[in-house]
Write a protein that binds this DNA or RNA. Sequence first.
DNA 1: TTACTACTTTATAATGATTCTAAAAAGGTG
DNA 2: CACCTTTTTAGAATCATTATAAAGTAGTAA
Lengths: 132, 132
Amino acid sequence: MKYIEKLRKSGLRPTKQRLQICEVLFDTERTFHFTINDLVKKINEKLNHKISLATVYNTVHAFEKKGYLKQIPINSNQTYFDTNISDHHHFYDLKEEKLIDLENSDVGPINIFKKIDGKKIKSVEVLVKLED
Amino acid sequence: MKYIEKLRKSGLRPTKQRLQICEVLFDTERTFHFTINDLVKKINEKLNHKISLATVYNTVHAFEKKGYLKQIPINSNQTYFDTNISDHHHFYDLKEEKLIDLENSDVGPINIFKKIDGKKIKSVEVLVKLED
DNA sequence: TTACTACTTTATAATGATTCTAAAAAGGTG
DNA sequence: CACCTTTTTAGAATCATTATAAAGTAGTAA
């Protein structure tokens, strides 16, 4: 399994559940956005048994902390995650309530002129809301 | 009262509760960020009686819909609102869990090159995460 | 003023995502 | 295998937010 090493390197034990979740998240052509609820559905479709909801939460948070997933800052009752961890931004279609990737080349360079003493910029995220 | 007209113009009846919430939100030198919980505390400090939690939620949502408040897109268990409705962005200090305004002049122009058929850009919001 | 209607407030219950708990299971190492 | 630590798990708990439905209030027109 290609994910065993990846997990070990991060200090995460490659358990059955984590490996299966890796397959659902990362064995795809395209990256995608998901909520925990979406992910549980995907897992149930792919596997013939369930992974405990608590484990899904634990795993997603562990993966996020290790940088394998990104949270998307958006106001919603559910938290959205992204398997695309490259530096990029999002459209949010307000009507369809759907996120669309904005590749880095779709957005001009962003310059932040203000500085806060003792703080470093960790990330810059742009959310472009769309209406009809 | 200066808010009576404002509310009437928006099609919102100027009720006692709405006017009092207006005073807490808009009778200030500076704009500020808040959660519903923060707002309830401010109301309780300023007034000697309480406004029902449901009313605070209703009012904040009504004001947001009318454009007197903006939601700040950020991942948090609580929803953050901003009394600064001008076009501007935010720093988010991850350690302190605090939002800091980025005035428009603090951020260079943002160019979005991608277009989605039939959709218009409603807003462009930048969240700059800070770490130590 | 009064009567009427629509809108608003309110306490409380319901919802639903997320987190917590603590016991059972599994991974890693000697 | 034996041991210890990490992980999984079901279920309970938490907590922000929304829904409900009854009582109150604003606006209006006679």
